Amino acid sequence: MGELMKRTGTVLATLAAGLALAPPAAAAAPPASDYPDAQLTDVQATGTGCTRGNTVAVTSNGGRALDVIYSAFHVESGAVPADDGTTTWIPRASRHCRVSLTLTYLPGWTFALTAYGLRGTATLAAGSTGRRTAVHHVDGLPAPMASTRDLAGPMDGAFAMYREAAPPVYGECGRPRRWELSNTATVDSGDTAKATRDEVMLDSTSLGVYDKYHLAWRRC
């Protein structure tokens, strides 16, 4: 487990630096007078699957996306090894993470959340199951956006969730908006002990595993 944390921590630092420094994919950033200057403030991360120290939130693609990257968000069940070399049977387990932040920007602009894409990886033996549940609320939305992805073994690989806002809802002009992003990962190995370990990971163990929220901007 110590080696996993060390590896994911290194990938997290590399990914966060790349996202922060990379130019927008589509085109160069427009002049400052034509850019909303989106900034994240008061970022908090709490829960059994994350803390502020192992979770990063950054804007990307010229302010047209928000990326959330985890480095310690994983849950295990089944034959789970301990640091002392012993193995404990855990029939089912769950972890959650709540990220809250404020998105600020220049007067004369407003934005809407248009879609989000969430990724993870899972290793599940035959008969085992996993689930990821996501609930996202942005100030000004009439109701939270919620999604659930059910997973079933045998499985060893990546999974993704995607949802579009229909229709996108733009907020009050120039007013900072608070976000609440809540994610839960669960895994169930069943009641019959087996010599296998099941796991659902939302960690940045590869550069393709992070959550992306797509934004549309317009003048108001």
Rank of each mutant, 00 (worst) to 15 (best):
E180R: 13
D211R: 05
R177I: 04
G18T: 09
P24D: 04
L118G: 00
S33L: 12
E172L: 12
D83H: 06
E164D: 14
A112I: 07
D198G: 06
T186M: 12
T8W: 01
C97Q: 07
D198N: 15
L124Y: 05
R52C: 00
T205H: 11
K6P: 03
D203N: 13
D198L: 00
A20T: 10
E76H: 06
T14I: 08
S100A: 15
A82L: 04
T88V: 10
L106V: 13
R98E: 13
N183L: 12
A152V: 13
K212R: 15
P30K: 05
A17C: 07
A193S: 14
R92I: 02
T123Y: 01
S147H: 08
T41N: 13
N183G: 11
R92Q: 11
Q39G: 14
T133I: 07
A25C: 03
T102Y: 01
H214N: 11
R132I: 05
M161N: 03
E180H: 12
A72E: 02
R7H: 10
L21G: 03
G47M: 05
V56W: 03
V58P: 06
T186S: 15
Y35R: 08
T192I: 15
Y35N: 11
T110C: 14
T102D: 13
V58G: 04
T88I: 08
R131H: 07
V99A: 06
A13F: 06
G78T: 00
F73P: 11
V135Y: 00
A13D: 02
R149M: 09
H74M: 07
H74S: 01
H137T: 14
L15Q: 00
L202H: 00
P144R: 12
R178I: 10
T148D: 11
P23Y: 03
M201R: 01
P142C: 10
T59E: 00
P167Y: 09
S100V: 15
E180L: 15
Y210D: 00
G153M: 07
G49I: 01
P91T: 00
R178W: 10
T121S: 12
L106C: 12
L202Y: 10
T148W: 03
R64K: 13
D139H: 03
R197Y: 09
G117K: 06
G47F: 04
R98H: 13
R177M: 13
M161Q: 13
V56I: 14
A65D: 02
R218L: 12
T148R: 09
C220I: 10
P24M: 09
E180C: 14
V209F: 06
L215P: 04
K212W: 01
G85H: 05
V99Y: 02
V135A: 07
L12R: 06
